[in-house]
Nucleic acid binder design. Sequence first.
DNA 1: ACTTGCTCTTGATAAAAATCAAGAAGTTTA
DNA 2: TAAACTTCTTGATTTTTATCAAGAGCAAGT
Lengths: 189, 189
Amino acid sequence: MTELEKYIKTYFGVSNDELSTISAYFKPTTLKKNNYFLKSGRHCDKLGFVQSGIIREYVFVGNKEITKWISTSGYFVVDLSSFVFQQTARWNIQALTDCELYIIDQKDYQQIGKVVTRWTELEKLFIAKCFTILEDRVLTHLSMTAEERYNQLFSFNKELFNQVPLQYLASMLGMTPETLSRLRKKTLG
Amino acid sequence: MTELEKYIKTYFGVSNDELSTISAYFKPTTLKKNNYFLKSGRHCDKLGFVQSGIIREYVFVGNKEITKWISTSGYFVVDLSSFVFQQTARWNIQALTDCELYIIDQKDYQQIGKVVTRWTELEKLFIAKCFTILEDRVLTHLSMTAEERYNQLFSFNKELFNQVPLQYLASMLGMTPETLSRLRKKTLG
DNA sequence: ACTTGCTCTTGATAAAAATCAAGAAGTTTA
DNA sequence: TAAACTTCTTGATTTTTATCAAGAGCAAGT
């Protein structure tokens, strides 16, 4: 069973039949380091699942790159506004390491809905879950200092800090690389 | 046509038949100033639509109230994690003024899905839209200063600053009341 | 009208975080 | 291996924002 199948089974609680139907639509692919899954301005016509590797989602604000999220094994990557509403994509989605992905294109994705009865319901639940996670993330910015946000992420996923350039984590946490560097020093020493 | 019906029609693009079916499930109610639509810790078993008035969604973090959002006419109010996933509610949802609401309880809400074929699809699209709005909100915290966040909200909705206690807006923007006060002075003078 | 309480502002100060600049350490490339 | 990059750290400084404290302005209730 692939990571993708485990994920779908655990998260969506589908039957084995449904599971194999759904996962059959996802095609294994590789994405080489520094290559793009998606570039902003294009249309996002596919959904990816990270089997292995690390992927960064970022956007230019002015001349600055803002990293919105780092996806590791077990995360989906997509520009939802583009995938669902056919708008131009806002996010750049780029591999930080060589990656194994499972990819489904929009046409096949819509096909699932015709084959798996509960699919739209499962989609809804999944997006709702993502919404509540984002609500929490907003709350961290309303209620926590940079140091507290760093500590929270560090205790949640220590390995990330060995695998991902720290400047990207700093951006994702809403602070400068210098500030992150000093917070690391502070909590280690 | 009520605000609710206008909203549903504009946003979901449903037929007139579907519209009247859906809106019939929403019951007009009033909520007096300072009363609660929802208290955290309870189960959120209803969804509200603000016809008139102002509602604040907040949560205690430590001993501090954090205002997550201010809803005015045209907004839905709900604790999504509670309404969808049957968890205990995280948000306190309280009327800042006397309000007119349209409320639907969970049982009737589920009933819509049995009557309106596309309902789950419409739900999905609505939640996806909310997700992308939250993505933007996270981005403002990653890329903007307190002053920029204030200016953005002020140019988006000037009236809010006359209608809502500024301390709540400050919290929602992720700054102290003192900082908001000084930013207001700065941009006016 | 007079408290009482609440909200907002203002000032002084402290703390947090950003910026600017330089250099160290590690990688990649030629 | 050397040169060129890139990333991270560190120091000095400035800017931004929070904190603490006090008072002004209003509104509600007695």
